Amino acid sequence: MPDESEDHSDSVGGWAKKYYLTSRALIESTLRPYDIGRTQWYVLHQLVTYGPTLQRDLGQLLELERATLSGIVTALVRKGLVTQEADATDQRQRVLRITDAGRALWSELPDPIAISSSVAFGGADPADLAAARRVLQEATRRLNAHIAPPS
């Protein structure tokens, strides 16, 4: 049991949060000149890498609320980077596809995840990175199991 007087900002969780926030800031500053937000980049990445995707599935993949994703998709459609069409088999569902303009922009975009990882972890000992990954994976698994509704 952790000591209640412990400085939480210097805990593993505190540092994980600081890393996340700082990494997010670097990603956003990398994409800002292209007028693309971090989550918009993830949508484009999905569509370029895996092809047309149901909007519902994209929300689940990116762990986004429907309303949040709807706003992001609307912005990408308005910019002409993505199309949104009714699914051929279920007209209630929307399929997202990248446009030619979206592909052209994608070819210009730097990979903000690679940049962030390179800056943060370049030169780090692979064994240390593997240990950090294992610890955070297990912590995430335990938290998910703890909050999961009983079967």
Rank of each mutant, 00 (worst) to 15 (best):
A86E: 11
H146E: 12
P112S: 07
G51Y: 03
Q137C: 15
S151A: 07
S70D: 12
I27T: 05
W41I: 07
V77W: 05
Q46Y: 12
V48I: 14
I36L: 14
A145C: 02
V73S: 00
R24I: 09
E65S: 15
G123P: 07
L21I: 02
S70F: 10
E85W: 05
E28K: 03
Q60V: 12
P149E: 07
S117M: 10
Q55Y: 00
I113C: 00
E138F: 06
S117A: 09
R133I: 12
L81G: 01
R97L: 08
D100M: 11
V82Y: 00
L47S: 06
T49F: 11
D90C: 08
R142W: 08
R94L: 14
L64F: 02
Y34C: 12
R56M: 06
A75D: 04
R97E: 15
A120I: 02
G51T: 07
L21M: 08
V119S: 00
E138T: 15
V95I: 05
E65R: 14
A101K: 15
A75T: 03
D125A: 14
I113R: 00
Q91I: 08
S116P: 08
L76P: 06
D100I: 14
A131R: 15
L136E: 11
A120Q: 03
P110R: 01
R94S: 14
A130M: 06
D111W: 10
W106C: 00
Q40V: 00
T140L: 12
W15K: 00
V48L: 09
S117F: 14
G51K: 04
E65W: 15
V95M: 01
T83N: 01
R78K: 13
V82H: 01
T140M: 09
A25T: 12
Q91H: 12
R92Q: 10
A114S: 09
S107K: 03
N144V: 11
P112A: 01
V73G: 02
T53P: 05
Y20N: 02
N144T: 13
R97Q: 13
E28D: 06
G122T: 04
L105K: 13
V48K: 14
A16G: 05
D87Y: 08
A114D: 10
L96Q: 04
G102S: 08
W15Q: 00
S23A: 11
P52K: 09
V48D: 13
L105F: 13
A139R: 09
Y42N: 07
A131P: 06
D57C: 06
A145I: 02
T140H: 05
D128Q: 10
L76K: 04
A120C: 02
L61K: 08
L81N: 04
R32E: 14
Q40M: 06
R134V: 03
A104Y: 09
A86Q: 09
P150R: 06
A104G: 02
G37W: 01
E85L: 13
L31I: 10
Y50W: 13
I72E: 12
L76C: 01
A120H: 09
L54G: 07
S70P: 04
L143R: 07
L31M: 01
